[in-house]
């Protein structure tokens, strides 16, 4: 029968081995040659867009890369799907946006912030998502 000290070794051994493998894979994933996100294209505007994305908690309703709330549409491919003009109208709307009944928060963003968010969403839209991009936003590219 298994003894307590064998059980402890199983715990410690398994933890150390998988933890090291995890760190190794993390390093591997972030090797520049494995980049799928066009990391070099992240400029000031995109960073500002990310700040706005966070400070307004857009993720509290929307998903991006499939992560967030399930209350409002997925935004990974929104620029492809709707175009910049539409997104601008949503962000600058003086009344809560909500043509189908469900309301968005009224942001009335200025031009500068709107452009930053659009730059951020454009950058997001170009990330290679291992095939998920085809499933998540059916109205992107496929339709045309």
């Amino acid at each position: 029968m298994l003894s307590k000290s064998q059980a402890r070794s199983f715990f410690l051994g398994g933890t150390v081995v998988t933890f090291l493998a995890f760190i190794g894979l993390t390093v591997y994933s972030f090797k520049p040659s494995n980049d799928q996100s066009n990391h070099s294209q992240i400029d000031k505007k995109v960073v500002r867009g990310k700040e706005l994305w966070e400070s307004n908690n857009c993720m509290g309703c929307h998903t991006i890369l499939g992560e967030g709330g399930y209350y409002a549409p997925e935004l990974t491919k929104v620029i492809d799907r709707r175009g910049e003009g539409y997104v601008k109208a949503v962000l600058q709307s003086p009344v809560p946006w909500g043509p189908r009944g469900r309301k968005m928060v009224k942001y009335q963003m200025n031009n500068e912030d709107t452009e930053a968010l659009i730059a951020y969403l454009k950058w997001i839209g170009k990330i290679d998502l291992n095939g998920f991009d085809r499933v998540v936003s059916p109205l992107a590219k496929d339709k045309k």
């Binding site: 890369l65 998502l129 998540v136």
Partner: peptide, 8 residues
């Protein structure tokens, strides 16, 4: 899987 990192 689908957040923009390697397929591994």
């Amino acid at each position: 899987y689908y957040i923009g990192v390697n397929k591994i």
